[in-house]
Design a protein around this nucleic acid. Sequence first.
DNA 1: TAAAACATGTAATTTGTTACATGATTGA
DNA 2: TCAATCATGTAACAAATTACATGTTTTA
Lengths: 183, 183
Amino acid sequence: MPRSGQTDMAVLGALSIEPMSGYALRESIRDVLGHFWSESFGQIYPALAGLERDGFVRREGAAKRGASTFAITAAGRRRLRELLTEPVQAAPARNGLLLRLFFGRALGTEACRALIAGARADAERRLREFDALDARTAAEPQYADDAPFWHLTISAGRHHAHAVIAWADESLAALDHLDPDGR
Amino acid sequence: MPRSGQTDMAVLGALSIEPMSGYALRESIRDVLGHFWSESFGQIYPALAGLERDGFVRREGAAKRGASTFAITAAGRRRLRELLTEPVQAAPARNGLLLRLFFGRALGTEACRALIAGARADAERRLREFDALDARTAAEPQYADDAPFWHLTISAGRHHAHAVIAWADESLAALDHLDPDGR
DNA sequence: TAAAACATGTAATTTGTTACATGATTGA
DNA sequence: TCAATCATGTAACAAATTACATGTTTTA
């Protein structure tokens, strides 16, 4: 039974905004936190069970059939603040694109170009997703108190995507200079 | 015995540049690929054993006592090209800083400010590390053919660090506007 | 009424880290 | 000679994904 503090933080945090089912929890983590966080069913349900056992969430509605909603308790809010205050643990760096480019001499210049162009296209797509996400949250006045913080995370995503685009353009130009025949 | 293609790629790639011991492999992965990749002993040694069994690396020097060096074979180079050509698999997003900021209303504005300032300081430190890394590779003429590719990865790190700094400054200003008394 | 979406959970597997155990070599 | 560094490996644990199993509710 995985009980990482990280998963508990994400689950309690989401439930601190509004009560929802485990299914909805996963959907909103994917759709709203998706660009900087992820959780799978295999973690969410055991985490909910543990949090319920410890009195941090309360299950509302029948457990057996159909929908049951999980709500955060007062103890759960205290636990959330405790978790949020813990030092940020750096995720181990694992960037498959940069690993391939580092060995670009073995991979070949043309394949490198394609990888960089792909990363640039992904970044452009993410920028469009951020626009949509911004519009969605701005349209819901009940989240007004949370929106400024949500905006910080979207802004981080935008800055990152812009950085990828600038880097890609610069890098494609550098590879052209290295090997002027685009072949 | 973990045998992920990702670890094999990093190990074969490093050995494609020059033969070295498992220990040195870990050091150079930490020191050179550190800003975008990581491997631990628990993965490197089993990976080396598997690669040796499959004929992709050859152990030179006594296995029992003191140093033994691992060198990539011709089959290993073919295997490396094969691995490098595989599609980049996106690492699951896990950014503990942004997760905390997203729940910034529960964490408190002041703690958010401190987290952002910390991220900014980390980025500044990384920029200095990139300068040192650049100087180190530029000083070794034997890596001239690889250096242009290595430079792409360092440039990516720099762009990313600059993006973090710009985002942090913007975000700190936004939080000031939200709550003018810094208390 | 059939398909799609909602909903909950478990089990197997993968992936990776950390700690432990052991020993050789080198330099102060 | 003692400590630090180099070196190899295993075992225990932790974290997370994926696939599987099961059933309900809504909608076309």
